[in-house]
Design a binder for these strands. Structure first.
Lengths: 330, 330
DNA sequence: CTGAAAGCGCTAACAA
DNA sequence: TTGTTAGCGCTTTCAG
């Protein structure tokens, strides 16, 4: 075992509680004593054992961050910003991946529960009821999902989707299609609603499919439906799916954007480097990560606090090369 | 606070040690007692507190995974596979991001030290000496770095780089350039050596630049050097950089692959969807993640064990559209 | 097979 | 300002 508080106490010729104090409440100990302790600690290479500390204080200084799929490029920037912000505030972050499986999500939460002071659920796949249930034990912040009574960071994908519909309608498209995301996705549901309303307002038709896997493969598979429906404007659940759709379309000899326009969501690297460069709805992922941690830390600081702070972040449409006017009608 | 072992003991009418045993050594307790305890535990929703358990046993059932940059698409697949494999083996994984900063790396290791049973260092930026020093306290496994005395997972990028050189030489290129990665990168050093040797064997010239930032931006900046050197074949440290280089080149009116060929490394999504599709050296990231955890668990199981198991994984060249014969000499 | 007791590393009243 | 004394939740001898 490593060096403990007792070794330091002995070396400094003080009692353990004095050592404890010099670390947790330095101002309660006389300056020169403190220095003696610090010197001894430095010499021995002492580092407080967080876990032991947590046992008495109930504070772990760890946060949990649960995502559906680390390999999905939507998440890494969010994780990264959450983590770096948490670190600034003195917290470590446990990142866990559920593989899009609601049961794994539940399992992970309960395993993490004892080791963290709170958890951020990003784009959860669990039902609202389940989340609300779990939240009795532990502070939660939810990203991209609105759960009654819980703090949340919401990205306003609804208005993003509406903007995308208007963009496509403005270009002259009359038959649009929305490729929905996975079951249980709040984002997908928001898109559905707002896109439908926007389509109606703009006087264009909108067909909706789904659930689809939020991957290139899911997009490739969905391409057939696009063709079948005769849609010339497509909004995909995310960039990966949009890229897959474009591939699927071009596999059938249909060119993007000459014949069909495609809009993605997330503004990932993949979309930026794909050809044609993807028109996409940019999600403020970095801010979301930061805000989520911020909200969580608030919730932790004042337990039972005034709960349910909601932060809504704007999205924006980035027009690039995958959208254009439709071909003239024959 | 949540329900503890004591609550369960009371409910089941046994002593706490019996409850403890039914969880940690079930066969030491009579069947019906065990069942009574389990029933009480289930009823109360008891979950052993890992942190408290760790305090006595010294086993946390957590692993640390330290990477330079989660947002770099090279890492997520590795993280994901490490994590899912660890979970199967009953371990949670703390993922931490150092932002390419060696000091942050050191800091993170020491913070994590008390909360994990071992750590995987992926593409560390720390010096070998520093790593070796730290490894006294805690089992380590290093990925993409060979540290004496430590288990490691090595991706054979050397042979990958050599293959890339031969590929380019075979296409007819005579002036190659290698865009090195960040300072302290073992991968970059391996590439340098093998590429130089391969170039010599193939009778082509090879110029080497670096360090460069392993990002699109780094690649864009390096494009100027490529032009200046008059190289027609480029091997970039990773896909992101390769993509940046292609952008930079095309910004100067130079077409890839018609005028210059570019090879990336990592085989990320970004490279797959970029246009032209990137020729790249595929890294076995998923296997690396799994192998690293495997090695680490071995090291943990037999401390002071026969140390230093090295696993070497093959890389392979994926030829796509960013490489072609050079233009005829004028 | 089960209970009693000590202790993991640390903090937190309470005295002194 | 510092030492004493109890624990936090759990495991682990050692008895019984």
């Amino acid at each position: 075992m490593a060096v403990t508080i007792r070794d330091v106490a002995r070396a400094a010729g003080v009692h353990v509680s004095t050592v404890s104090r010099t670390f947790s409440a330095p101002n309660l100990v006389k300056v020169d004593t403190r220095e003696r302790v610090l010197a001894a600690a430095a010499e021995l290479g002492y580092r407080p054992n967080q876990a032991a500390r947590a046992l008495t204080t109930g504070v772990t200084h760890n946060l949990g961050l649960i995502v559906a799929d680390i390999a999905n490029p939507f998440f890494p920037p969010l994780i990264k910003s959450a983590q770096s912000y948490a670190r600034v505030r003195g917290y470590q972050v446990f990142v866990a991946d559920t593989d899009e499986d609601p049961r794994a999500e539940e399992e992970l939460i309960s395993i993490l529960a004892k080791q963290v002071d709170g958890v951020v659920l990003v784009s959860p796949r669990l039902s609202n009821a389940a989340i609300a249930g779990l939240s009795a034990d532990l502070p939660f912040v939810v990203v991209n999902r609105n759960v009654k009574g819980l703090p949340a960071v919401l990205m306003d994908i609804g208005s993003g989707a509406a903007t995308a519909v208007e963009h496509l309608a403005g270009l002259g498209h009359r038959r649009l299609m929305l490729l929905g995301g996975p079951r249980g996705s709040w984002t997908s549901e928001q898109m559905r609603r707002s896109a439908a309303a926007a389509a109606e307002r703009s006087g264009v038709s909108l067909e909706i499919t789904g659930p689809n896997a939020p991957t290139e493969r899911g997009g490739r598979l969905a391409a057939a439906a696009v063709l079948e429906a005769g849609a010339t404007g497509v909004i995909a659940y995310n960039d990966l799916m949009a890229i897959g759709t474009i591939e699927g379309l071009s596999g059938s000899g249909v060119e993007v954007p000459r014949e069909v326009s495609v809009v993605g969501v997330d503004d990932t690297v993949a979309g930026r480097v794909a050809r044609p460069k993807l028109t996409t709805i940019a999600m403020p992922t970095q801010e979301a990560g930061r805000s989520a941690v911020d909200l969580l830390l608030h919730a932790i600081d004042m337990p039972g606090g005034r709960g349910a702070a909601k932060t809504t972040l704007e999205t924006s449409l980035v027009v690039r090369e995958s959208t254009a006017p439709p071909p003239p009608l024959k």
